[in-house]
């Protein structure tokens, strides 16, 4: 049997090539190479798609009548949430909006300009065409007062008021005031 095994695979005394071993050791293993390439391809192909998916605006959209080239966005400072998108109303004097967190009523629409027009667009934000309004005071359902932000968008000639904190759903009413802190109008939020 030993003789047969000797003949089966003869012994070879050829010299080895240790440098070849070291070269192979430095080379990336095939399986890992495949993983690296697959990851790179996935990152290149899937990255942008994932970015689009993650940053996709899933909130209400502005109506088609809006001028989408001039969109303004109101962001709640505390939470960083988008509260409202607004844009001029094409071929009309007014503006179109898309209100986030509009739990009742219309989340999107267009408003024609009237000299003293003002209303809530959502429990968190509203508008007025009255250019005299520079500040506002909100009253909560509990009777407490809370300050809210007022910002005029010159491109739209509309003044928006919107909540600063996360609890504006308890808004009961908003007093719109001029520079002399005179109340010009009081809006009540109807749920």
């Amino acid at each position: 049997m030993n003789e047969w095994l000797e003949q089966l695979v003869p012994r070879h005394e050829e010299r080895g090539d240790w440098d070849d071993v070291l070269r192979r050791a430095r080379r990336l293993p095939r399986r890992r190479l495949v993983l690296v390439v697959a990851f790179a391809v996935a990152a290149l192909a899937g990255g942008p798609a994932l970015g689009v998916m993650l940053t996709r605006d899933r909130g209400p959209q502005l109506p088609p009548e809006a001028d989408h080239s001039r969109v303004s966005v109101l962001i709640q400072p505390v939470s960083g949430r988008i509260l409202l998108k607004a844009a001029p109303w094409k071929s009309h004097d007014g503006f179109c909006y898309a209100a986030f967190f509009a739990f009742s009523g219309r989340p999107a629409g267009c408003v024609a300009r009237t000299p003293r027009g003002a209303a809530f667009l959502s429990p968190l934000a509203g508008y007025t065409f009255d250019s005299r309004v520079v500040s506002a005071r909100a009253t909560l359902v509990s009777g407490r007062h809370a300050s809210i932000l007022v910002r005029r968008l010159p491109g739209l000639s509309v003044t928006f008021f919107y909540s600063r904190s996360r609890l504006p759903m308890l808004l009961s009413r908003v007093e719109l005031r001029d520079a002399g802190t005179n109340t010009l109008r009081t809006l009540r939020y109807r749920r």
Partner: peptide
């Protein structure tokens, strides 16, 4: 034989790695 010799080279490369 060729496959065997190549396997030894690969095996030692794996051992080094």
């Amino acid at each position: 034989r060729d496959l065997g010799c190549d396997a030894v080279q690969e095996a030692f490369a794996t051992a080094v790695r």
